[in-house]
């Protein structure tokens, strides 16, 4: 396993489109490797959990690969992990998209569908407002989602966005960052956020980032 300092391991679910994520890290001069290995997910310094289509297909795939427990463990241990779009929803206990399917249960909440009077999926640029700007500044990010996380998980910092309803567009604790938007498609602001995750967030402990809770 190449686990050099400047390699980001992307969980390879076989269905997620990860070329944009890889290109974003390449622009920051970081290597990327796809992985399905439980050992790599346990030990790697940096792991990305990308969006993977539907909630139930995503969870099933993680079970098939035998990486549900390693992922939960590294997040609970606050090892550097970035969950993007559906990857963030997978952290929830469950989702309205597949009520019978258990999520990873890191967030004690259920992902909900946007109200039916809105255009769904939410497809485009929307404003992200962090609860405090100590880590990153408010910005405009690219979203492509039908479901969202409605409430802040206790003990986690959050940023919120409004699309018919207020929802949690990002949440972080220590070096674990979950984004409903796509940082890799959010131009300069998104690239900055990836840089913050790779560098600045590594120095934060969960207690420091959850000071407001």
């Amino acid at each position: 396993m190449n686990n050099s300092d400047k390699t980001v391991f992307i969980v390879d679910t076989g269905v997620a489109n990860v070329a944009s994520v890889q290109a974003a890290f390449a622009r920051l001069n970081w290597e990327t490797q796809l992985t399905q290995s439980a050992a790599t997910i346990s030990e790697a310094a940096f792991v990305v959990l990308p969006g993977v289509g539907s909630f139930s297909a995503g969870i099933s795939r993680l079970h098939e690969l035998g990486i549900v427990e390693p992922l939960k463990r590294r997040i609970n241990d606050r090892q550097s992990t970035l969950a993007i779009c559906l990857g963030m929803q997978l952290l929830c206990r469950s989702s309205d998209e597949a009520p019978e399917t258990d999520g990873l249960g890191i967030f004690e909440t259920t992902a909900i569908r946007f109200p039916s009077d809105l255009l769904v999926p939410q497809l485009g640029w929307n404003t992200v407002k962090p609860s405090s700007d100590t880590l990153f500044q408010p910005g405009v990010a690219y979203f492509a989602n039908s479901y969202c996380v409605p409430a802040a998980p206790p003990g986690w910092e959050t940023a919120t966005t409004h699309y018919g309803i207020d929802f949690v567009s990002a949440s972080w604790s220590g070096p674990v960052l979950a984004c409903q938007f796509h940082p890799e498609l959010s131009s300069h602001w998104g690239q900055q956020l990836l840089t913050i995750w790779l560098n600045k967030m590594q120095t934060l402990s969960p207690t420091e980032t959850s000071a407001s809770c």
């Binding site: 944009s20 290109a23 390449a26 690219y142 998104g190």
Partner: peptide, 9 residues
Amino acid sequence: VRAQLSIPL
């Protein structure tokens, strides 16, 4: 184009 671009394509 992708290598350059950090917006949707």
